[in-house]
Design a protein around this nucleic acid. Structure first.
Lengths: 342, 342
DNA sequence: TATAATCGCTAAATCGATTTAGTAAACAAC
DNA sequence: GTTGTTTACTAAATCGATTTAGCGATTATA
């Protein structure tokens, strides 16, 4: 009395249409090399529809050695940036008939073993690597698998399969925005220096300064990491460092900006009257901060979407795969930035 | 020249161990009814290890009609609450050797068709329904599938398979906290009245009032929904309504609290000096608000974990499945609550 | 010594699709 | 009228596991 009603199989459809199973298979997969009379084709299609036939991906996959599933490896599931990458990836996968399997990597877990589990155990057709932790060990591990993969949100040496946002360009825009408001002493709360995004954003910051004819001052750059606590600590460090106080700050992330603002508030330094603040990557948090935060908005979900689409194309035989940098970034001006005083 | 090196199959292992494929299968799956000499068993285990053999879930699934995968249906992937449910679900799935397939439901998508796609197309063994939208249509749709499922974060009539947090108890604690601080005019920014969680939290609010001997005043409850914009609008409505201003507010969500606080700020009403604020569900945002928000912390990821574990047990033949309400909730006191003034 | 029971395994069927090879029927060409 | 082509399909093999049925060898029982 366990299972009574199975899903209809290809033979059920074949029987109903009065043909053989292969005929059904080839008609439904629109095989060009298979010649059928229109009438037979129609019978098959009708039968499939009437039974609401869905081919078993398992049986299909067993034969063609594919699972039609992709694995996405992500740290910090509750980080909105990663959530949006997954969101984009999920849409792309669904659009192409693939399913998306998520694997969370907690910081203590071995990177390589997660990749291996997805490829060997789950047999995913491809891997979406959302934040590769360590280029030194991660990239060789990925390459050794000899399986299609794509890097999201970072590049790595010798890996042509990546999709990133324009961290550098966006950061430059942030600086330009501040410069346009008259700021000339602009600090940067930077991510950890070994991180890909951190490097790009720092580079963009420097490019912005340079273009405005401002000199880079090492004392105005403090490593904060990406977190709110890091942002707070870095802000405090900056205030205590003895350098002349900046009139504006560009933080490497939204959370770091938020953390920095809470320190400023404690110190009685007003935003934006005394100091303007810009954060990187937009998010709903930006709106509820006091004051609402000016940010650089980036196409995060688009990044997930494009990476996944490209991966699927690659899996399905499209040999060329060129890395993509999504250009569109824009400043979302809120209340945390204002013209420099006096 | 396509694929050279396949993953090792059961026959590879069998050959290497000098036995038949079934022997390998039964030894590796620790089949009690299969009698082997210890030496043969060891040869098989060694061979499997040497080849790094992983059984193909596809072949296995085809035979036993299971995919060893679960589908989780979630709205608003970038909502931290849902992210944490997924996080918990992913861990539970991994712990039991299942994989987790995520399906995002955007508000415009038909609920039933997503369930159906997961069950019919992806053939998941079970469904984790994280926020059922509409009880009237959703529950019959789920039941019609005749497939194991579990409701997370809400109950529904006639569905014994659910895991929820203690919305009511947590809300009561929020009120108790405020009462302990001397507040007697406590408002509630409520979720939409048809939502499960909203109802529970309102009930908890009323229970808290009652226990403190306070009378429920309809004018102090405003429907805000769960979002920051909703919280802001409701706050404004409350201020404009003409009722005597409350000294404390319990908001149904963290975001609603944040939105409400931004309105208070605009109006020059200080938190917590003039009004105390508590939000439901903790999250990192709480720490960066001005002031940092007192919240009710709930075991969200635990909810995802337990729901998934229970679902798997159910799939694997455990007939009994009793709904669970996770008891532990606690107040996280931050700077947004203070003793009532005068 | 013949028969039964137990041990330790294997052969073959099966799951539901795809793919390769092939075949019957209709028609054309020589 | 035989051979060759084309048309429209089908039979059988296959993917990699599990499961059912069963078989030869050894030990126990009558």
């Amino acid at each position: 009395m366990r299972k009574k009603s199975h899903s209809p199989t290809i033979s059920d459809v074949a029987k109903r249409a009065g043909v053989s199973a292969p005929a059904v298979s080839r008609v439904l997969s629109a095989d060009k090399d298979f010649v059928v009379r229109d009438e037979t084709r129609q019978r098959i299609i009708d039968a499939a529809k009437e039974l609401n036939y869905q081919p078993s991906q398992m049986a299909r996959g067993l034969r063609v050695s594919r699972t039609f599933s992709l694995g996405i490896v992500t740290p910090e599931l509750d980080n909105p940036v990663h959530a949006r990458i997954i969101y984009g990836a999920e849409r792309a996968a669904a659009d192409h008939g693939y399913s998306l399997l998520i694997a969370h990597r907690s910081p203590d877990m071995d990177e390589a073993s997660i990749y291996e589990r997805l490829v060997r155990h789950n047999r995913v057709d491809g891997l979406i690597v959302a934040t590769l932790q360590d280029e030194q060990t991660g990239v060789p591990a990925l390459k050794k698998l000899d399986h299609p993969f794509v890097l999201v949100n970072r590049k790595a040496k010798g890996v042509p399969h990546y999709v990133v946002i324009d961290d550098e360009g966006g950061s430059k825009k942030a600086v330009e925005h501040l410069v346009a408001l008259g700021h000339r002493r602009i600090a940067h709360l930077a991510g950890e220096s070994h991180r890909y995004n951190a490097k790009c954003r720092l580079r963009g910051y420097r490019a912005g300064l340079k273009e405005a004819g401002l000199v880079y001052e090492a004392g105005l750059v403090v490593e904060s990491g990406y977190s709110q606590n890091g942002g707070a600590a870095a802000m405090r460090e900056l205030l205590d460092s003895g350098v002349k106080r900046p009139t504006a700050i560009f933080a490497a992330t939204l959370l770091a900006a938020a953390g920095a603002m809470s320190v400023l508030r404690e110190e009685g330094i007003r935003v934006p009257e005394d100091v303007s603040m810009v954060g990187f990557n937009d998010g709903s948090i930006a709106e509820v901060l006091a004051p609402p935060l000016t940010t650089v908005r980036t196409p995060i979900d688009e990044m997930g979407y494009q990476a996944t689409s490209a991966l699927i194309k690659h899996i399905e035989g499209d040999e060329e795969f060129v890395g993509t940098t999504l250009p569109s970034t824009e400043i979302v001006v809120r209340a945390s930035t204002a013209p420099v005083s006096q």
